[in-house]
Design a protein around this nucleic acid. Structure first.
Length: 605
DNA sequence: CGGACCGCGT
């Protein structure tokens, strides 16, 4: 762009020909025109060029102009803090507005230490921060997870009496949340009178980012009961995420309803969250339907669909969706590949998994992360290739984490390889993750091998470490209420009819050829005792309860915290056949759909 | 603002 063109454009922008043109007025128009030219720049290069040419024209720049330039330079989407700094340094007496702009610019560009340094400089020069300074500053503390600095800043907020500013309050809630000090977040939240929608959003978001899903739902309920119905879209997405993790399908459906009633067109983030929620709550069909009707799918949508199909055991379909994604010229990222690999692993597609792993590196140039290695160890392990899995771990260029070793351990349990299992456990203990589950798997493997001394030894070690494992349970939803069952449970009011039902079911099942499989009752007790215990596993109690309390033919959905044992798997297949019920069981990370005596996992567990 | 690997008590 030449000098004359800048000048002619400023005339065009600022001084229509029909206005009277006194020299001063024309100059003022030209100045404004220059400002809008600078504001409309699309890159820092363009900005620098235009700026240089305007300076050549010899305009007088007052501090007002300069601070406007700092704003443009620091906060536009192509922002350059180096250049913003150079203009900022030319301002003789910058005030809080200029300092705030610089802090916000540094935070936007993630140069957070610089943001804190500017704040220090501000204090040294005796300029008092205001309610626009603190939100940016607290965001820097949040992103740095610098609790100490955050507390200091909080103190400063108090000193200046700014604790009633709603933006400052929300930033404090957010900062403490990001620093994993949710108690302090809540303390700020509680102090606020007349909580606004933004306040509720901040505290719900803080709990969501820490994975405190139950608290999220409770806060959302509280918010609604206080008459605060119109939540922000982002809050509803957080709440949806909580529903997804907790399997709270009914609340998830309500949120879907809220979206449909209040927003004419759902955006891609909301749609993706809804799909994820439906799929992870067991309604694969509904998720698939929403996915197919999406007007524009992005990589997130494909990602949730692929891993969704994976957890439902539909490996081939997941690979099909993946090829669709490639056909649409969307390039897969590392997380999409985690979905693809876990799809292969859950469905036993060993060759496809290995091919995908190669393709990821050589066709899409993605460096495998520990998650990808974990998937592959799982893939080989489940398929019984234990030795290969171990060699694979040894050949990894990065340090294997606990999940990798635990996948191997699990494979060793499934394929009865105590020797390799002991190696895996040793590695797990070296990593010091203090996980009660690891001790239990090993002790159960010893029990399987009838090595009761070793069982006792492991249990003792576990007790010495103070590790306690929460009991296995099954949840079932009947008439909009969730009921929880643990093994041998007699705490339900209907327990006598439940146990009668169990008795009746057993009789019918035996008639159809069911034989109890006591091999996984890992206790040193006699066969009869084992059979008795097996009969009352939490999942069976939950099924009996659902059979009694729901109408014939209606589906039964069960959520468990642990994987189901072989016997419960076989038992549930028989029930689905004899009682003509579709039963879906969700464990920690996958689904089993039982129908007409067949399970969707095709017994590849 | 949204997506990720593994396992577990009687």
């Amino acid at each position: 762009m030449s000098g004359t063109s800048v000048l002619s454009q400023t005339h065009l922008l600022s001084a229509p020909n029909n206005l009277p043109q006194s020299p001063e007025l024309s100059f003022s128009f030209q100045k404004q025109g220059c400002m809008s030219l600078l504001k409309n720049c699309k890159s820092i290069e363009e900005f620098k060029q235009v700026h240089a040419q305007i300076l050549k024209l010899g305009f007088f720049w007052d501090s007002f102009c300069a601070s406007n330039l700092v704003v443009t330079c620091a906060l536009s989407n192509w922002s350059s803090m180096d250049y913003a700094c150079s203009i900022f340094r030319q301002i003789a007496e910058p005030g809080s507005f200029e300092f705030n702009t610089m802090i916000r610019g540094f935070v936007k560009n993630m140069t957070l230490e610089e943001a804190l340094l500017i704040y220090v400089e501000m204090l040294e020069r005796g300029i008092e921060p205001d309610n626009f300074t603190f939100p940016a500053l607290l965001k820097a503390c949040a992103l740095l997870m610098d609790l100490e600095e955050g507390i200091q800043v909080h103190g400063h907020v108090f000193k200046l009496g700014l604790e009633d500013d709603v933006f400052v309050q929300n930033s404090l809630i957010n900062m403490y949340g990001k620093c994993r000090e949710i108690g302090l977040s809540y303390a700020v939240f509680e102090q606020i009178d007349g909580k606004s929608i933004a306040t509720w959003s901040a505290i719900i978001g803080a709990h969501a980012s820490l994975g405190m899903w139950n608290e999220c739902l409770m806060l959302f309920g509280e918010m609604s009961s206080k008459g605060c119905w119109r939540a922000e879209e982002s809050t509803l997405v957080s709440v949806l995420s909580a529903c997804t993790h907790l399997g709270a399908l009914n609340l998830g459906k309500c949120i879907h309803g809220i979206f449909l009633r209040n927003i004419s067109e759902l955006n891609v983030i909301v749609e993706t969250s809804l799909i994820d929620m439906y799929i992870k709550c067991g309604y694969l069909e509904k998720g698939l339907c929403l996915f197919q009707n999406m007007s524009k799918k992005n990589q997130f949508a494909y990602s949730v669909m692929i891993s969704g199909l994976a957890i439902h055991g539909h490996g081939r379909e997941a690979l099909k969706v993946f090829s669709q994604m490639l056909e649409e010229d969307l390039s897969p990222d590392d997380v999409v590949y985690v979905g693809v690999l876990s799809a292969c692993s859950h469905a036993g597609l060993v060759n496809e998994g290995l091919q995908s792993f190669n393709r990821m590196q050589f066709e899409h140039g993605i460096e495998p992360t520990v998650q990808h290695y974990g998937c592959l160890v799982d893939l080989m392990g489940r398929a019984g290739k234990l030795k290969e899995a171990l060699d694979f771990i040894k050949s990894m260029p990065i340090k294997p984490n606990d999940v990798v070793w635990r996948s191997l351990l699990c494979a060793c349990r499934v394929h009865d390889n105590l020797e390799l299992g002991e190696i895996a456990v040793e590695k797990l203990f070296e990593l010091n993750c203090n996980n009660p589950g690891d001790y239990l798997v090993l002790s159960n493997m010893y029990a399987q091998a009838q090595r009761w001394d070793d069982v006792a030894r492991i249990r003792k070690e576990m007790a010495e470490e103070g590790l306690i494992q929460t009991a296995g349970f099954s949840l079932v939803e009947v008439k909009r209420k969730v009921y929880k069952f643990v093994s041998q449970d007699k705490s339900q009011p209907q327990w006598d009819s439940i146990y009668e039902m169990i008795h009746q079911m057993e009789w019918q099942l035996k008639f159809e050829g069911y034989l109890p499989d006591t091999s996984q009752v890992l206790l040193d007790v006699d066969e009869e005792e084992k059979r008795q215990r097996l009969k009352c596993h939490s999942q069976k109690l939950a099924i009996a309860f659902a059979l009694i309390n729901t109408s014939q033919g209606s589906p039964i959905r069960i959520t468990r915290n642990l994987r189901m044992c072989n016997d419960c798997h076989t038992y549930t297949k028989f029930i689905s056949l004899i009682y003509k019920r579709e039963i879906s069981v969700r464990d920690r990370n996958k689904f089993h759909h039982f129908k007409d005596g067949i399970c969707s996992c095709r017994d590849y567990k």
